[in-house]
Every structure is written in C-alpha cells, then in structure tokens.
C-alpha cells in the first residue's frame, strides 16, 4: 500500500496536467458548438461527402447539427488520442522508471515480494486512468449543460466508458511491454498508441482491412457506432480486455523473475 500511495503522490502532477489538458480541449470544443451549430447543417453535408476522409472518421453516420454528432467526432478524437497517449506514457513508464532512475535496487530490497510491487504499480496505472476519465467526463457533462444542450446519458456513459476501456487496454499492454524491455519502452508505448489509432482509420476506409478491427481498441471506442447503435461492440471490447490481460500477465510473470539492473 505504501508503494501505491507513493506512486499516486509521484504521479498527481502529471495526471492533473493531462486531465486538465484533455478536459480543456473538450470544453473548448463544446463551447464552440453553439456558434457553429447554425453552420453545421451545410457542414454535415460537406463532411458526409469527403470520401475516404468521411469514412475514416465515420462522419457519414453522424449529424454535426446535433451536439452528440459533433461531440462524437471532435471530442472523440481529442480524448481518444490524448487518453491513449497518456495511457501509453503511464503504463510504459511505471515499471521501467525504477530501473532507468536506478531506484529499483532500493525499492526491491524492502521486504515485499516482486509480485506485490508489480501489482501495486499496475493498480496505480489503472486507477490513475479511471480518475482521469471520471474528471474529464464530469467536466464535459457540466460544460454540455452550461451551453444548454442535451446528450443522451446512456450514450454519454457508453462513449466515455469505451474510451476508458481503450486506455486501460493500452495502459496494460504498455505496462506488460515495459517489464520485458528495459530501455525505450516509452517510445515503443507512444508509438504503439499512435499505430493503433491509424490502424483504426485504415480499417474504416478499406473493407479489405476489416481484420484490423480485431487488433485495435479504437474499433470498439467508436462514436459513430455507439451513437447510432446505442451500444458498444461488446465482442471487440471483450477481445480488447483479453489483449490487455494477457500482456499484463506476461509482464507480471517476467518481472517477478527477471534480473534487475543496478
């Protein structure tokens, strides 16, 4: 527990910066909406006819004249990319920072099992992501009420829930990777998050690349689907949970037996 508290204290500043950064960008988008609303009718047509670009972002399925459609695309990308990068950053650094900063030796010579250390660090990643998403979605919800718009609660929860799940998956995968790779796990993590995002764009554009949806978590965190169907693609979400769990388990397994560098 002491380690968990330490990680929380150590991480609060970064967490606050990312949370407020993402929330601020969402809020800017939301507060711009009333101004843009009237022009959106023509914009919707324009956006719906931009060929592959339209397909990539699912813009043909959403109505930009309504807040939900606008929020789905604009804000979905902000929290999707921002959240994924933060999850990768947090997950990839949590274990590897101890070796990078040469504190692993100090930490691991206390009477705690490696498993216990890894568990506290893993939970720390998960909890920080949950906190980020709770704060962001709360601020977002308040902003929506402030501009006097409505957003169906169920869809709002599903949308933000899917982004949380996406971040947990990426966080867990990067956490697992960082147990195996001592140096450069941060770069690999951030790269992975970006690649997964682009894989989703590709799978949206080309039907030949439909298989990619089974790889990238952005396939289930998809506003166009959630807002039109009113539900998540639970099959893809479950697959994502499996990926995250397998990667984290592999990380646990290896970190509990590997040699720590001085």
């Amino acid at each position: 527990m002491a380690l968990f508290v330490k990680e929380w204290k150590q991480g609060t500043r970064t967490l606050a910066v990312w949370t407020l950064g993402i929330a601020a960008m969402l809020m800017v988008c939301i507060f711009l909406f009333p101004e843009m609303k009237h022009e959106m009718d023509s914009m919707t047509k324009l956006f719906a006819n931009m060929g592959t670009f339209t397909k990539a972002f699912g813009m043909d399925l959403l109505n930009f004249g309504e807040l939900s459609g606008f929020y789905g695309v604009e804000c979905g990308n902000v929290i999707g990319i921002g959240g994924a990068l933060f999850a990768a950053y947090l997950g990839a650094g949590m274990l590897s920072k101890e070796e990078k900063e040469h504190t692993a030796e100090f930490l691991m010579t206390h009477p705690v099992s490696r498993f216990c250390v890894v568990l506290q660090k893993f939970l720390s990643v998960m909890i920080q992501l949950v906190v980020l998403n709770l704060v962001v979605s709360l601020l977002s919800w308040i902003s929506i009420r402030v501009i006097g718009e409505q957003f169906p609660a169920k869809e709002f929860v599903l949308l933000h829930g899917s982004y949380l799940l996406l971040q947990l998956e990426i966080g867990a995968i990067c956490f697992g990777i960082s147990a195996w790779i001592r140096r450069g796990s941060l770069g690999i993590g951030l790269g992975l998050a970006a690649v997964l995002y682009f894989l989703d764009l590709i799978s949206n554009i080309s039907t030949d690349a439909a298989l990619l949806q089974y790889i990238t978590p952005f396939a289930y965190a998809k506003p166009a689907h959630i807002l039109t169907a009113g539900s998540l693609d639970w099959g893809l979400a479950a697959l994502g949970i499996v990926y995250g769990a397998v990667a984290a388990a592999a990380g646990f397994w290896w970190y509990c037996r590997k040699d720590l560098t001085a």
């Binding site: 330490k6 100090f106 009477p111 705690v112």
Partner: peptide, 24 residues
C-alpha cells in the same frame, strides 16, 4: 546499502526515510 545510493529525486529526505519504514 547499495554502492550507488539512488533514490526518488522528488522526495524529501524525511519522506524517503519514512517511505522506507512504511515499506517495512
């Protein structure tokens, strides 16, 4: 006592010592 005594940079010495005790 490690030969290269490296600790969490952002901690104060008192916090570090207390953290070590809490871990025990």
């Amino acid at each position: 006592m490690p030969s290269e005594a490296m600790f969490y940079n952002e901690m104060k010495v008192g916090e570090l010592i207390a953290f070590s005790a809490k871990m025990r």
